[in-house]
């Protein structure tokens, strides 16, 4: 029971962060809905674990906990992949910035001479 209360407190904290980020405009509607549903889903599985068994049977996995672990691993891999793509994009933007600065700086010197 203690673990359930601790997890619920954590979920409440995360949800509050999600709401704050949505309100200050740093998170879009899609992000807000996905994160809210995800964390509310965690709460449902936590307090009504039978739901996970029902869900697991539907997709052909024996135990609900196993299904949750499998899905979590897939979600984590997907998250890591998305982060990798995002990081690459930021790296490219940074390079563009550094390149433009180098060329502009050179051209400014060329004009002075």
């Amino acid at each position: 029971m203690i673990i359930k209360i601790l997890v619920t407190m954590f979920v409440a904290f995360v949800l509050s962060r999600v709401i704050f980020r949505y309100r200050d405009g740093s998170m879009g509607v899609a992000g807000f809905l996905i994160w809210t549903l995800l964390w509310l889903g965690v709460e449902v599985f936590l307090w009504v674990p039978q739901v996970s068994d029902l869900f697991a049977h539907k997709i052909g996995i024996g135990r609900g906990v196993d299904a949750l672990v499998y899905i979590s691993i897939i979600a984590l891999f997907y998250g890591a992949f998305k982060l990798y793509i995002k990081l690459e994009s930021v790296e490219h933007d940074l390079t563009k910035f550094v390149r433009n600065l180098a060329i502009k700086d050179r051209e400014a010197k060329d004009h002075k001479q």
């Binding site: 940074l94 390079t95 550094v98 390149r99 600065l101 060329i103 700086d105 050179r106």
Partner: peptide, 25 residues
Amino acid sequence: VIILNHIINRGQGAALKTGIEYVLQ
């Protein structure tokens, strides 16, 4: 010679592209 300064290290591919872009201009 002409020197172009990257303010931070961006890698050989990035440096080549900077140089090529400049000389094409």
